[in-house]
């Protein structure tokens, strides 16, 4: 049954990352973070981008470390789970670099 847990790791990470970025977005807009500046730019989008990139890095690590070799349905499903999570995180959270933060 460990293969089921390994299959769920990628999508599970997406779920956590999606909640974290969405939560950070809500907190930031409520607490007026876009007005706060850091040397690299406004704090709010930077925080979300950093979180997103960190999450994508973990997805990358999952693909490398959690990807079994070999054929068979179970190995294929673990690989599929890794990629589903990574693509979902990349696609659903790309607006952190493309959309107006709190407008």
């Amino acid at each position: 049954m460990t293969w089921v847990a390994r299959m769920l790791a990628g999508p599970g990470l997406w779920a956590v990352l999606f909640c974290a970025v969405y939560g950070l977005h809500g907190l930031g807009c409520a607490w007026d973070w876009p007005a706060r500046q850091t040397p690299l730019g406004p704090l709010h989008p930077l925080g979300m981008i950093a979180l997103w990139l960190a999450g994508l890095a973990v997805h990358g690590a999952l693909i490398v470390l959690n990807g079994p070799g070999g054929e068979g349905t179970q190995a294929g499903l673990i690989r599929a789970g890794n990629w589903i999570g990574a693509v979902a995180s990349a696609v659903t959270l790309f607006p952190v670099i493309a959309a107006s933060t709190c407008g």
Binding site: V91, P95, A98, A99, S100, G103
Partner: peptide, 19 residues
């Protein structure tokens, strides 16, 4: 879908109220 989402996001950005 990637093209469509990008296009719609661009259209939406032009519509929202700004300060």
């Amino acid at each position: 879908l990637a093209m469509l989402v990008g296009f719609a996001l661009w259209i939406g950005e032009r519509m929202i109220a700004r300060d």
